[in-house]
């Protein structure tokens, strides 16, 4: 089973509140290449060297929320296997939101690091 093959890596759930940022960053990095939901989840897993595991249960609601907010845009296309899929890209508003979230995330993690180091 997959647990055995991945036994080498301890998997972690996405820290609360960072999922939007990770999705936005993933879409921002791919640039003109658009990703569908499964690819977003897989990209996040790969980039985190299989540490971060996106739960499907929170991925699709998050995508929907960001569609409503206008941070991402979805467009129906086809996978290389000719399956219909919704491909997402980041919008200008999404880029601004990503900047804001990165800023605050960096501040918080720097502050957390200070506390941990002083221990």
């Amino acid at each position: 089973m997959s647990q055995q093959t991945l036994a080498a890596v301890e998997r972690e759930p996405i820290p609360p509140g960072t999922l939007d940022m990770l999705i936005l960053k993933t879409l921002a990095r791919t640039g003109s290449e658009q990703l569908h939901g499964f690819e977003i989840a897989e990209t996040i897993r790969e980039r985190s060297r299989s540490v971060l595991q996106v739960e499907e249960g929170s991925l699709y609601p998050a995508l929907q929320r960001m569609l409503v907010k206008g941070w991402i845009a979805g467009e129906w296309g086809h996978t290389p296997e000719r399956r219909r899929a919704r491909y997402y890209r980041i919008t200008a508003a999404g880029k601004r939101q990503l900047e804001r979230e990165l800023e605050s995330y960096k501040r918080v993690s720097a502050a957390v690091a200070l506390i941990i180091q002083s221990a």
Partner: peptide, 10 residues
């Protein structure tokens, strides 16, 4: 419907 479709693809 769109949501169901993309979830089933997943």
């Amino acid at each position: 419907r769109d949501l169901r479709e993309e979830m089933s693809l997943h």
